[in-house]
Amino acid sequence: MVASTSDIVATLRAAGCVFAEDEARLLTDAAGDADQLADMVARRAAGLPLEHVLGWASFCGLRIAVDPGVFVPRRRTELLAWQALKLAEPGAVVVDLCCGSGAVAAAVAATVPDAELYAADVDPAAVRCARRNVPSGHVYEGDLYAPLPAALRGRVDVLIANAPYVPTRAIDLMPPEARLHEPRVALDGGADGLDVLRRVIDGAREWLAPGGHLLVETSEAQAPVLLGAAGFAGLRPRLARDTGLTATIVIARAPQTTRTPS
C-alpha cells in the first residue's frame, strides 16, 4: 500500500523533522517506486540526514552529490562561496581546502570562466564525492596543503577553507544527524575549535599570489582570534557576515609584493 503524503509527514514529524512537509515532498519526488519511498522515509525517520537519503544537497543553486558518511554542505557556507566568487576573476587559480563534497569548488566551477581549480580533503570518501561534483578540477587526498602540486606556491588567487571549527568538547552537543552520521574529522577543530584554521592561516602566505585572498568560515566568537592570526601571518584581514545565514567569514589579503625569502 502506498503511504499518503499526510502519513509520511506524520512519520517525519514524529521523528523530529522540523520541515516535515518539505522533506516529504523531496522524498516523494526522489523515490522511484513505493518500496523505495518507504525505505527512504524509514531511513530519514531513523535519523539519517536528509541529504544522505536523497543523495544530494542544494548549494548555491546546484545539486551537490553527497554520499553517506560525507560532510553535508551547510546553507551558511554559501556566504563563503559567494565571497569567493566575488574575488575570483576569469582564469583565476582557486584552491578549496577541506573541500568535503566539493560544494564550494563546484560553485566556482559553475560560475568563474576558465578557473584553474584545485581541491583537497583528508577524508577519502569526501575526495571521491568531490571528484564527481567537480570533474573539471583537480581533487587531491591529503592534509591541507600537503597534496597540492608544488607549482601552485605563490600562484593562488583565491584560497578557500571550510575547515572544522567545532571545539572538541562541543561535538557531543551537536545534533545527532551531524554527530552520528558525519566524519568527526570534518567537525572537530580541537580544544578551541581553531587548530586546523590556524594551520591554514600559517601556511597561506606561501601559496597565495601577490594580492591573493584567503577565505575561511568560522563563528562570530572565534573570528577575533583568526583576525589576529591572519594579521600576525602578514595578511590584511577583514570580516564578512550574513545574519540571515548566521555566517561569518574571515577574508585576508596577501601583500601585493612577493614575500622575500628569509
Rank of each mutant, 00 (worst) to 15 (best):
A14L: 08
A125T: 06
T11W: 06
T243P: 10
R198E: 10
L208T: 12
T246C: 15
A119N: 02
F59V: 08
G102E: 08
A84K: 00
Y145E: 08
G91Y: 00
T28C: 06
R153Q: 14
A191Y: 04
P164M: 08
P255V: 00
V9C: 00
S101P: 00
W56E: 14
R128V: 11
G190T: 05
A254S: 05
D195I: 02
R169F: 02
A254P: 01
A84N: 00
S58I: 11
A30N: 13
C60A: 15
E21M: 06
E89V: 03
T11A: 13
E23Q: 06
G91I: 01
T111Q: 09
G61K: 13
Y118K: 10
T5A: 14
L152I: 08
A130H: 06
V196P: 02
V104N: 04
L215S: 00
A170Q: 06
G100I: 07
L87M: 11
A221L: 12
A34Y: 14
A119P: 01
A46V: 13
R179D: 05
S219C: 04
F232H: 15
T258R: 11
I201L: 06
T218F: 08
V127K: 05
L226E: 06
E51L: 11
R128Q: 14
G32L: 13
V127P: 05
P164Y: 06
R199N: 02
R74S: 10
P68H: 12
H138P: 07
A109V: 06
F19P: 03
A88C: 03
S262K: 12
G228Q: 04
M40C: 13
R198N: 09
A45F: 14
S4H: 09
A107V: 00
N162D: 10
D123M: 10
G203M: 12
A186R: 00
D157N: 08
D39R: 12
R75C: 10
G234H: 11
Q83M: 07
E217W: 02
F232K: 15
R236C: 13
D143P: 11
A126F: 02
P210S: 09
S219M: 05
A186M: 01
G154Y: 02
P73G: 05
A92S: 05
T257R: 14
V72T: 03
N162S: 07
A106I: 03
R241I: 02
I160H: 01
R169H: 05
N162W: 01
A178G: 05
P124M: 10
L48T: 15
V95G: 00
G234V: 08
L80R: 03
T218Y: 10
L227R: 09
T258F: 01
L79V: 01
G211C: 09
A20R: 03
A115D: 11
V112L: 03
P167Q: 07
D67M: 09
G137S: 10
M1W: 10
D195N: 10
K86E: 11
